[in-house]
């Protein structure tokens, strides 16, 4: 009788030690929710849906995109930070706006430290452009004219609290002048204003410019990438023109901090494989998404660096 009991207890112990491992090994056992902080159908949303559709192949479970738009992304990003860190809720983030919001608004309910960064997918440099027959041939000429009188030159951008606002504030400080910055709700209305000659220049992102450049409606004066971009090889960088500033819009994946280590690994690997998938790369080219993969470690370091710069900048030159 006793032997049976011992056997039973041993068996139970064995099962109990194996079961938790089995439970862990079962990640992902249900679909993972991806919170996208932008409107369905917009650039960010399309990028996210395309990426995760390919990542599903390598992940084993599906990714359910949930749009929580509003407040330039604050609503969605706050939701990611406050989600349960069980690896089943992650999200798509857009630095530097993602980093700028908590700095410029103390009441913001999330901070960089609340997140576990997983991977960066897209790096889209900023540009400054003018219309085809504009009198400005270089960025230097543009700023020189601006210096003549405050607000004599107008430029459209997407509003305060964006990477463009930051770049323009930096340009103004370096030249000691003021631009007539006119905010529009998006780069498309800004382009319309430029094409109708209501403004002198426009600040937007490189990926949004291809159609306009091709149709001859836009001429780029400068790009904010670290080096000349292969998609626009004749466009000088801001640095080359004398303005040593980086202006890039990033898009990547993050989760609330403290998710299980193997959830992090599984998602990171799936995304990495998706990015290397030739079909995905072709699709990304069609969508004009400049890919630039960074894994969790790289990404965290990169963003922490930018964050520190932004915090310093805010103290001396709030945007």
């Amino acid at each position: 009788m006793k032997k049976i009991w011992v056997a039973f207890v041993l068996a139970l112990a064995l099962t109990l030690s194996v079961v938790p491992a089995a439970v862990w090994a079962a990640y992902p056992e249900k679909p993972v929710e991806v919170i996208v902080a932008m409107q369905a159908g917009g650039g960010t949303d399309v990028a996210a849906r395309t990426l995760f559709k390919f990542a599903e192949k390598y992940f084993g479970q599906s990714f359910a995109i949930i749009n929580k738009p509003g407040a330039s992304g604050e609503i969605g990003w706050t939701a990611i930070a406050q989600a349960k860190p069980d690896g089943y809720t992650i999200g798509f983030i857009n630095p530097p706006a993602f980093l700028m919001l908590p700095i410029q608004r103390p009441a913001c309910k999330y901070r960089l430290e609340d997140f576990q960064l997983i991977a960066n997918v897209v790096m889209d440099p900023g540009v400054i452009g003018v219309s085809k027959d504009s009198r400005f041939k270089t960025l230097r000429e543009f700023m020189a004219e601006a210096k003549k009188a405050p607000k004599s030159v107008s430029i459209s951008y997407t509003g305060p609290g964006t990477s463009e606002a930051l770049l323009l504030a930096r340009l103004e400080k370096q030249e000691g002048t003021e631009l007539n910055k006119v905010p529009f709700d998006g780069s498309a209305p800004g382009m319309v204003a430029l094409m109708g000659n209501h403004v002198d220049a426009v600040a937007m992102n490189l990926s949004e410019t291809h159609t306009y450049v091709q149709d001859g409606n836009l001429r780029l004066l400068g790009v904010g990438a670290p080096g000349r971009d292969p998609a626009a090889p004749d466009v000088p960088t801001y640095k080359e023109e004398g303005y040593d500033y980086l202006q890039v819009a990033l898009r990547g994946v993050a989760a609330p901090k403290n998710i299980p280590a193997e959830a992090l690994k599984a998602i990171q690997d799936a995304i990495g494989k998706a990015i290397e998938d030739p079909e995905f790369q072709a699709k990304a080219a069609e969508l004009q998404l400049p890919l630039r993969y960074m894994n969790a470690e790289e990404y965290t370091k990169f963003l922490q660096g930018i964050n520190k710069d932004l915090q310093e900048e805010w103290k001396t030159n709030p945007w």
Partner: peptide, 27 residues
């Protein structure tokens, strides 16, 4: 023609165009 949506629905439509590899404009 210009790649600029005329209202909110057509803005979403732009996403649909892009997904199929169609860029608005003369092309």
């Amino acid at each position: 023609t210009l790649g600029v949506p005329g209202n909110t629905v057509s803005a979403i439509f732009l996403g649909g165009l892009l997904i199929h590899g169609l860029r608005p404009g003369l092309q």
